[in-house]
Design a protein around this nucleic acid. Structure first.
Lengths: 329, 329
DNA sequence: CTTAAATGTGTAAACGGTTACATATCGGTT
DNA sequence: AACCGATATGTAACCGTTTACACATTTAAG
């Protein structure tokens, strides 16, 4: 391993001077700068970030904690974070929490131990006090929070839009699939839908679900049609659940969207590939990741931030599990 | 920040002794061990990995380089790697290369600068000499290599199986979609299929494609049916491309699998959710990730390894874009 | 021409751990 | 009682950087 000392020796200056040219810090004569750069090139020297990090008590690393990269909503988020962080020269220390408080804490610890400059967390459990005594900035992603910086989509509004659209398109007996109680965004969606539906004169049911795994979703889909066979509209808690409902409905020979309309949530990439393609409420996952990264970088750089909370808009994606709206009213 | 010195002071011993109890190293009296542990608990001390890493010239970090986490094949791989690494106490430094040699080199550099103990790379460009002078172990994932440890699925065999199955099920005019030339696994699949088809007396065409992006795939799908309208069997280079072909075929009103059979590659999670669900050659992505992680850990620990190359088997997943095989021969 | 400020460079002390080496005590064997 | 290995602990060097401080030289101002 070639160190700063080797460079110093080769260029005939002290390590301090080498350090100064590398960091464009303090005074250094142009001639010596050139000599040093030449030595750097010749020796293919690149500074040891670990040593740097130790002295400065700051690395160029940020921690990214996601519930599960295998859930198709998260790769987009992660990519947004990564692309943006890369620009600022930051690297990603990555972990999956499985929404498990212990795992989460474990990761948080190792993030700290590795001197990360900041953390982006998209986890949703109540173990908020895991974050209480952190000395470094955290931004929450896909998760509302009034006391921390956070970036999220307008879930409640999404729920409202979904309900409005499905009603407008003629569903009369709607079932809302309420997502897991501990996942805040799922609750927001539910509240939005509830708000609209309860103010209408439409019959509706609420079914609670406890995970976002496809295998579980298949069971609830079956249960849904067993319990409420005359449902003609489903507001699903996300696209995975919507997909399971779609499958079960097709299996039962229901005609979609004629007899049954379905609206998902997220607009995961595969939703447009389903048949019929899934109407859904789109969250701009990639942009959310980018926003979170930008916000964190600003905080790290101690820039003034106007808004600690960044709420991104949500849009209805009108595909083929909903009917075309009757423009004659 | 509480350091080892604080713990030493609180427990009335030297830092060396504290270090010894923390690492269960050398002799330490049971009574002092208890005193130290008490101080550790009271101060909530946890050692600074950066300092440790600097002295030992070894961190608990491994670098993971993927082409693009947004491609649905990779989250599974990543999760396999992460789960396995987590067990050994290793953390993941993560990057997307976009198959771009410059980005790849950039990440490799920062991995090194951060003292990672090993690297897992799933990239496919020819910039192999990026890895030539690395002083730390690398294992390649989803990529064959005779000179480096690597974990991959048997792509050639997969190509053979796909060709055999589609022929056995009665396709007579087959089009092979050959994946990007620089992606080795795609070429292996192609070679396997080619081998079987050229030994048969079946008509077939080969169409070259240059990426795995869905938007591009849609174009090739259109081109495919424009150029070879009487194709009755498609061997796609992966599930994304197969999905695009499936979509285009449905749009053209083709009956699947009656008029047209399609076989994909990878068995990405969404493939079972398509309609009709996609027959495909399954690569055990999660297991591949785990295997790669296990192999890397063994190399790090200097354990004897029997096989530098780990080839995992590939299986045909018989869904609904292929006909049922005629058991009467 | 004198002097202060600006420029240029080196020495050594941090950063927070680990460990080689030195030293001291303990327990068991002859 | 003398001796030796095992046990127990402390001191200080080291890992590769950055930077405070000291010092020397150049430049600009009066």
């Amino acid at each position: 391993m070639v160190t700063i000392r080797d460079v110093a020796k080769k260029s005939g200056v002290s390590v301090a001077t080498v350090s100064r040219v590398l960091n464009a810090n303090g005074y250094v004569h142009e001639d010596t700068r050139k000599k040093v750069m030449a030595a750097v090139a010749e020796l293919k020297y690149s500074p040891n970030e670990v040593a740097r990090s130790l002295y400065k008590k700051k690395s160029k690393l940020v921690g990214l904690l996601l519930p599960d990269i295998t859930n198709p909503f998260f790769p987009q988020l992660a990519r947004g974070v990564e692309d943006e962080m890369q620009k600022g020269g930051y690297r990603i220390l990555f972990g999956n929490s499985d929404e498990n408080a212990e795992k989460e804490l474990d990761y948080l610890n190792t993030f700290i131990q590795n001197n990360v400059v900041g953390i982006i967390s998209a986890t949703n459990n109540k173990a908020k006090n895991n974050y209480k005594n952190l000395s470094i900035p955290v931004v929450f992603l896909d998760r509302t929070s009034s006391d921390y910086p956070s970036v999220y989509a307008d879930g409640k509004e999404g729920g409202r839009i979904a309900a409005q659209e499905i009603v407008e398109r003629g569903s009369k007996r709607i079932t809302i699939l309420k997502g897991p109680a501990h996942i805040q965004p799922a609750q927001d969606r539910f509240q939005g839908a509830l708000e609209v539906l309860s103010q209408s004169n439409i019959d509706f049911h609420v079914m609670s679900t406890t995970s976002f795994a496809f295998e579980d979703a298949e069971k609830w889909a079956k249960e849904l049609f067993a319990t409420y066979p005359d449902t003609d509209g489903v507001l699903a808690s996300n696209d995975i659940v919507a997909t399971a409902v779609l499958h079960e409905a097709l299996r039962l020979g229901k005609s979609i969207p004629k007899e049954l309309q379905i609206i998902g949530f997220d607009d995961v990439p595969q939703s447009s590939l389903l048949f019929p393609s899934l109407s859904t409420i789109r969250q701009p996952a990639y942009e959310m990741g980018k926003e979170a990264a930008q916000l964190l970088v600003k905080i790290i750089n101690q820039e003034k931030i106007q808004q600690q909370q960044v709420q991104l808009p949500v849009t209805f994606i009108d595909r083929n599990t909903t009917r075309k709206v009757d423009t004659n009213g």
